[in-house]
């Protein structure tokens, strides 16, 4: 009887191990497929949407610099464009945190009295990220 039990236990153990191995294989396969889907989705964004998004970002840059007539109207259009980007998963990179090389590009640097080194003194261009990918860093002036 104990021999029979032992045999059954061996079979069950073997089955369990094989199932576990199958599960691990399937999980790996799923992870690999998820990676590929994410990669393909990223490539699609890069090829199809990115040029358009960068074009919109350039328009926003110009509105940011606009100091002439109809400023209120221009700013309203800018905010609408920023909202449009946000709705499509594109987030603006924060610039009130001090210089962060992961999201900012130093366009220039200068010493400024009263400013700690690394402080963002000016923002020349806003930066944008999508799903954590900073496809356009904010171009900033950094305090030395």
């Amino acid at each position: 009887m104990s021999e029979e039990l032992s045999e059954k236990l061996d079979v069950l153990t073997d089955l369990f191990k094989r199932r576990l191995s199958d599960d691990l294989d399937k999980r790996k396969l799923l992870e690999e497929q998820a990676r590929r889907i994410q990669q393909a989705e990223g490539a699609l964004f890069r090829d199809l949407q990115l040029p358009l998004v960068l074009g919109v970002a350039a328009v926003i840059d110009r509105i940011d610099r606009h100091e002439g007539e109809e400023r209120e109207f221009a700013l309203a259009i800018r905010d609408e464009l920023l909202e449009l980007l946000a709705v499509n998963g594109i987030r603006e990179v924060p610039t009130d945190t001090g210089f962060d090389r992961a999201t900012h590009e130093a366009a220039a640097a200068r010493a400024e009295e009263g400013s700690e080194p690394g402080t963002v003194l000016e923002v020349w261009n806003r930066g944008y990220a999508r799903h954590g990918w900073v496809f356009r860093p904010a171009r900033v002036v950094v305090a030395l």
Binding site: R101, H104, E105, A106, A108, A109, L144
Partner: peptide, 13 residues
């Protein structure tokens, strides 16, 4: 040493 994208972003500093 810092290499690549972030190094380029830091170059002006």
């Amino acid at each position: 040493p810092l290499v690549g994208v972030e190094a380029k972003r830091l170059a002006a500093v």
